[in-house]
Design a protein around this nucleic acid. Structure first.
Lengths: 359, 359
DNA sequence: CGCCTCAACTTGTACGTACATGTTATTCTA
DNA sequence: TAGAATAACATGTACGTACAAGTTGAGGCG
C-alpha cells in the first residue's frame, strides 16, 4: 500500500537523493549510488533515475562524470556559490553607496554573491528581473518595491518565488498583499517630525512636495498632514504638490516656482527628499530669495554631504547603511534557518542644520 | 553521406532550434515545431528531441507548456535575464563607489544584471567564485585579478571559462598567460611620474612603499626605480618597503616609523596608494613632524576627498569611474558582437595638492 | 616485477512503446 | 445559439532495450 500514489516516481527518487545529501548520509564529493543501484532499489527504469539525476544536476546538487559515477555537490556550510539577488528602484544617486554597500558588506562576509539590478521604478522591468531571478537559481531576494503605492501587478510572480522557497526581504517599502520579512523606515513619523519642527518654529504656510508613486512618499505626506491636524493648524491644500517618477526632475522646481510667485507664498517647504529640496532651493534662489532668511526648507534622507553643498540642509536621517546591513543579516538568518520572518521598522531622526529659521 | 557523423543527433536538433531562434525564423513567444514534427524532420526518436528541448530549456532559450507546445524564450534585444559577473579584490574602500558604479551604470542601462563578488585578494576565493560563475549561466566576467603578481593558479579555470564562450574583461591588472580584453592603468608611468615630481622638487632621499602581491604595486615600484635611473639619482634600497595583503594595515606605519627614526631619514615618501599614504602621514605626525614642511608625501589613486582630510594629498589620479564604464562598454560590445578583444591602457595624471614642497 | 589487456562497471546516446495529462477547436446536443 | 462532449494534438511520465564511451582494477603475459 503506497502512501501517495500520485507522486511521480521520478520525484520519489529526487527526494531520496536530496535526503541522502541534506542529512549528511553522503558527504560533499562522495559518490552516490549508481543509476543501476537506484533502478533496483526503487524498481523503476533507468530512464526514470536518469531524469531525476538530470534535474538534480540542474539544481546544482550533484554532478556526474562519465565512467566514474555521480557525486554530491552539496556542501552544508559552503554557500560560496549561492546568490542573493538585490532588486532596487535606483542605483545611482544616494542609495548605491548606502543601502547597497551595507548589504554587500554582510553578504560578502558570509560568502554569498550578490546579483544587482535596478528597475528605474518601472513595473515591467521589475517583472522582467523577477523572472530572471527565477531562472538563475537564486536563494534569496532583497527587494525595494517598484512604484509601491500602486497595485502589486507582479503578485503572481512573487507567489511563484515563494513557492520555490526563495527567501525575500523587503526594504524601504513592502506590498500589502505579500507577507514577508522587511526592513522599513517609519516614513509617516519622519514626515510628522519634520513638519512638527517647522510648525514649532512658527511656520504656518508650509508647502509639501511628495513623490507619491512610492509608498515612502505617501507615508511622508500622511505624516505631514497628521502634524497639521495634531497642531490644529490649517493645511492649505494648494500648498501640497504630488509628482511621480516621470516628472521627478522638473516638477519640484516648477511647483516651488509657481508657489513662490503667488501672492501669499509659503514660508517653508517640506520636501520628499534632499534631491527634491535642492531643486526647491534652486527655485528659491532663482526668485532672488535666500534660505533660510526668506524661506525655510526641510529635506529627507540626509543624502547630501553638508560639506559640499552651499546650504546646510536640515533633513531627516535615513539609516541607509544600517538598513542595508540589517536586511542582509535578516536574509542570511533566514537562509541558515536562524529566523523565520524577521521584521523591523527604523525610527527616523531629525537632523537640524541651517536651512530653517523661526518666525 | 553525412558531413560529421561524430556529432550526436541530439546536438543536431539543438543546433537547428538555435538557428530557428537566433536567425529570427521564430520570434520571441512564438511556437516551435512540436516534438513529433522534429521527430519526422530529423528521423530521430521523440526521446532525442525531448533531450535537446530539455537542455535548451535549461539554457533559457525555450520554455514548454504542457498541452500547448514549446515556445521561444529568446529575445534578440532583450538581455534582461543575462548576467555579467564582476569579481574584484576589495569592494569596501575606494573601489566600490568608483569602478563598480561605473560598471553598474553601463550594465544597468544596457539591461544586464550584475553579479558582484569580492575575493579579499585570496586565491582560493577567486577559484571558488570562478567555479560558481561557471555554474550560474553567466555570459561575461569583468575581473580584477587576485594577487596578480603571483602565478595564475586558476589558469585552468580561466581556460574552461573561455571554452564555454564566456567573455572576459580584465581591469586594473591582467594575467600574463591569459590573453583577453582589458582596461588597465599605466601604473609604471604613474610611479615614474610621481617619483619624477619629487626628484624635480629637489628630493633625493625618497622612500617608496609598495604592495607587491598585486601587479599594480610591482609596476608602480618599477616606475619608481626607473625614474631614479633616468635622473641619475642614487636609489637607496633600504628606503624601499614591500608589503602584501596580510600586513597592509600595519606595515606602512611601521616601515615609515622605522625610517623616520633612522639618523639619515628620507625627505619624501611615495606610497602605493592613498590609504598607505594616510598611514605614513600618521607616522610622520606621531614623530612630531609635519607634512609638507618636514616630509613630502605622494599618494596614488586619488581616493581620498581633499575636503575631508587634514592634509591635501598630492597623488596620482585613478580614473575609476571611467575605467569601470569602459570595461562595461567593452563587455557589452563583445557580447553583442561589435568587438573582438578590445584593450585599452589609461594614462595616469599627477594631481598636485599640498603634501609636497621643494627643498 | 612491470606493463598490458580486458572484464566489469559507470554514465552517455539513441531507439522503441505505452499511457497520462493538459489545451484547443470542432462537432454535436439541448 | 449556448453549452457540453469529443477528437486531435501537445507535452509529461514511465517502461524496455541496445550500444557507445570513459574509468577502474584484476589478472595475465613478457
Amino acid at each position: 500500500m503506497k502512501k501517495t500514489p500520485d507522486i511521480p516516481k521520478c520525484e520519489m527518487v529526487k527526494r531520496y537523493v536530496r535526503h541522502l545529501l541534506k542529512d549528511d548520509i553522503i558527504a560533499y564529493g562522495e559518490k552516490l549510488p549508481s543509476e543501476h543501484d537506484l533502478t533496483e532499489k526503487f524498481q523503476v527504469s533507468r530512464q526514470t533515475v536518469r531524469q531525476a539525476f538530470g534535474e538534480l544536476t540542474v539544481e546544482g546538487l550533484i554532478y556526474k562524470e562519465q565512467g566514474k559515477g555521480t557525486f554530491s555537490n552539496y556542501k552544508k556550510g559552503a554557500k560560496g556559490s549561492q546568490i542573493v539577488a538585490v532588486v532596487t528602484t535606483y542605483l545611482s544617486g544616494f542609495v548605491f553607496p548606502g543601502i547597497i554597500s551595507g548589504i554587500e558588506q554582510v553578504l560578502s562576509d558570509e560568502g554569498y554573491m550578490m546579483l544587482l539590478s535596478n528597475t528605474n521604478n518601472i513595473k515591467e522591468r521589475e517583472a522582467q528581473y523577477l523572472k530572471s531571478v527565477l531562472e538563475h537559481n537564486v536563494v534569496g531576494m532583497i527587494i525595494e518595491p517598484t512604484a509601491s503605492s500602486g497595485p502589486n501587478v507582479n503578485s503572481r510572480l512573487f507567489s511563484v518565488i515563494r513557492e520555490k522557497g526563495i527567501k525575500t526581504v523587503f526594504i524601504n517599502a513592502c506590498y500589502d498583499d505579500f507577507d514577508s520579512a522587511y526592513v522599513l523606515l517609519n516614513d509617516k513619523k519622519g514626515g510628522y517630525t519634520a513638519t512638527e519642527y517647522l510648525l514649532q518654529l512658527g511656520h504656518t504656510r508650509i508647502a509639501g512636495i511628495f513623490k507619491t508613486d512610492d509608498k515612502q512618499g505617501v507615508n511622508r505626506m500622511q505624516g505631514f498632514t497628521d502634524a497639521f491636524r495634531t497642531y490644529g493648524a490649517d493645511g492649505d491644500q494648494r500648498l501640497i504638490g504630488e509628482y511621480d517618477t516621470a516628472n521627478m526632475y522638473d516638477y519640484p522646481y516648477m511647483f516651488a516656482q509657481s508657489l513662490l510667485r503667488s501672492k501669499n507664498r509659503p514660508t517653508a517647504f517640506f520636501c520628499y527628499n534632499d534631491q527634491c529640496a535642492l531643486m526647491v532651493i534652486q527655485a528659491i534662489h532663482d526668485q532672488g530669495l535666500s534660505v533660510p532668511e526668506d524661506i525655510s526648507v526641510v529635506g529627507y534622507d540626509d543624502s547630501i554631504s553638508p560639506l559640499n553643498s552651499e546650504v546646510k540642509l536640515t533633513t531627516i536621517r535615513h539609516p541607509k547603511q544600517e538598513m542595508g546591513v540589517q536586511a542582509a543579516r535578516f536574509m542570511v538568518d533566514m537562509l541558515e534557518g536562524r529566523a523565520e520572518k524577521p521584521q523591523y521598522t527604523h525610527e527616523p531622526e531629525l537632523i537640524v542644520r541651517k536651512s530653517c529659521r523661526n518666525i
